[in-house]
Design a protein around this nucleic acid. Structure first.
Lengths: 109, 109
DNA sequence: CCTTAATGCAGGTCTATACCTGCATGTTTG
DNA sequence: CAAACATGCAGGTATAGACCTGCATTAAGG
């Protein structure tokens, strides 16, 4: 099963630095290691380590252009987490939202 | 800000044992420590520790009945995580789903 | 009451991991 | 080709946290 994979994704999300990196990539895809380091209170090597972990769990993918390593955000794992974990804890709210949407659509014209 | 709180919730979710506990409480609310321990490959004291952490970040709440401590699942923090973190990474998919739903509804009759 | 049951509290160990420094490798460009 | 640049690789330390054992405390029930 992918239960071990899910665990790794959760663990990857459990660090503010890694979430920040994901956030930055989501805002601007394809950034290099150097770009991602700028402004972070961490040594480059630490960032490399975090990016390595994120790559390992497929939350980012990588593309080499000469001496530059470009990073790209991959939404699949985080969506998997949502689908298999978050959604069921939230069903009541989602159902409520769905009903509300239905009523609004019905009252539209 | 609640950024530190969010971090704690992510960290709380980053452990399979704690996720299992949340899962069990979600399935059957109000269980005691003893009940929750049953079948878990952990000492009672470890479970106490995990429950303490979950309580600290408000993912569960507690109610004493005599010598029994009953635990209740609280969906708010996990929903907060979804709202502030997961949803934005998933907007494309959600939009796609929304469009699909609209088309299906249009093609219904 | 006195026994049994449910839990709390106080350490102690051991592994994971976050972070760093220092040096090596490969790529661009004048 | 040589200097400057982007990154990799190899350790080393230190803190967090997951887990345990042992004993104390409070409640229930005969």
């Amino acid at each position: 099963m992918a239960t071990k994979e899910i665990d790794k994704v959760f663990k990857a999300l459990a660090h503010p630095g890694r979430r920040e990196l994901l956030d930055r990539l989501h805002a601007k895809n394809g950034q290099t290691l150097g770009e991602l380091c700028a402004g972070l209170a961490m040594a480059r090597q630490s960032v490399t380590q975090h990016l390595g972990l994120l790559e390992e769990v497929n939350m980012i993918s990588v593309n080499w252009h000469g001496r530059e390593k470009r990073h790209y955000f991959n939404p699949v794992p985080i969506h998997m987490i949502y689908e298999r974990w978050i959604r069921k804890f939230d069903r009541q709210r989602l159902d409520a939202l769905h009903n509300l949407t239905g009523k609004l659509e019905g009252a539209e014209p």
